[in-house]
Structures are given as structure tokens and as C-alpha cells.
Amino acid sequence: MPEKASKVRALWNRVFGDRGEKEAARFLRARGMKILVRGYRTGLGEIDLVALDGDVIVFVEVKSRRGGTPAEAVTPEKQRRLTLAALHFLKKRGLLDRRSRFDVVAIVWPDDGRPPQVEHFRDAFEARGRGQMFR
């Protein structure tokens, strides 16, 4: 029974996460950013959205919750994994000379069907760990 429950929870998280990524992409596009990639995955980690803001490459972590403060879930360990995945992205595409930053989009979905509350944290954190490549 616990295995079935964990599979259901994983599926729910994937569906809920996908919904959040779509909302975040819509939100960022409405503010002039171009979405380059959704769900960039490597063995090092995953980046929810890669966007272009003018000439700056933006690595976006999306956190969706039904309440609370979603951005608090972007821990130092998560930041380290995002840094490594971003470095992989830039190396693979020959973009190491481009300016880049890490943003967080936090989404709170009300239970009553109202539109979500979206908060965008620009330049939310600096590259962390072995992959510090920008500063």
C-alpha cells in the first residue's frame, strides 16, 4: 500500500508541477521574457524554465503550493543542483560567455478557484558550490 500511495503522490506532484510551470511561463512571457526550454533535465538536476530576458539567460525555479511561502523551498542544496544544471546547459550550448541569473517564481493556488498568486524573485540567488561560474 505505501508503494501505491507514493506513486499516486509522485503523479500528483508531476501534474501540479506542470501546471505551475505553465503558469510561470505565461507570467514571464507577459513581462517580455522569451521561454527557451521547459524542463531541462540532466543527471545533475533539473531546471524548470530557461528563459531569455533581453540578452540575459535566466534559469527559473518554479515552486507551486496551495498555501504558505513556496519560495522557501529553494534551499541551498537545491540552489547548488540548479547551479550545476545551469553550467551543464551553458557548456553544452557554448554559452559560457553569456550573462545569466537565477530567478524563482512562487505560485500559490487558492482552493476557491480564484487565479493564482504569482510572485517573481529576480536574481533570487547566486551560483553555489563547485559550479560557481558567473561571479
Rank of each mutant, 00 (worst) to 15 (best):
D53N: 14
G54S: 15
D55P: 00
I57V: 03
V58C: 09
V58D: 01
V58T: 13
F59S: 07
F59Y: 06
V60W: 05
V62P: 06
V62M: 05
V62A: 08
V62W: 00
K63R: 03
R65E: 08
R66D: 12
R66E: 14
T69F: 15
P70D: 05
A71T: 13
A73T: 10
T75K: 15
T75A: 15
P76V: 08
E77A: 14
E77K: 13
E77G: 15
Q79A: 15
L82N: 05
T83D: 00
L84Q: 13
L84W: 13
A85W: 08
A86V: 05
L87A: 07
H88R: 15
H88Q: 15
F89L: 03
L90E: 10
K91S: 01
K91D: 04
K92L: 03
G94A: 12
G94D: 11
L95D: 10
R98F: 03
R99G: 04
S100D: 13
R101G: 01
R101Q: 02
R101Y: 01
F102A: 06
D103S: 02
V105L: 02
V105W: 03
I107H: 14
I107R: 09
I107K: 10
V108G: 08
P110N: 09
P110S: 08
D111H: 11
D111N: 14
D112T: 10
G113W: 14
G113D: 10
G113E: 12
G113H: 13
G113C: 10
R114A: 15
R114T: 09
R114P: 02
P116M: 01
Q117M: 13
F121Y: 15
F121M: 08
F121C: 01
R122L: 08
R122E: 10
D123R: 06
A124K: 15
A124W: 15
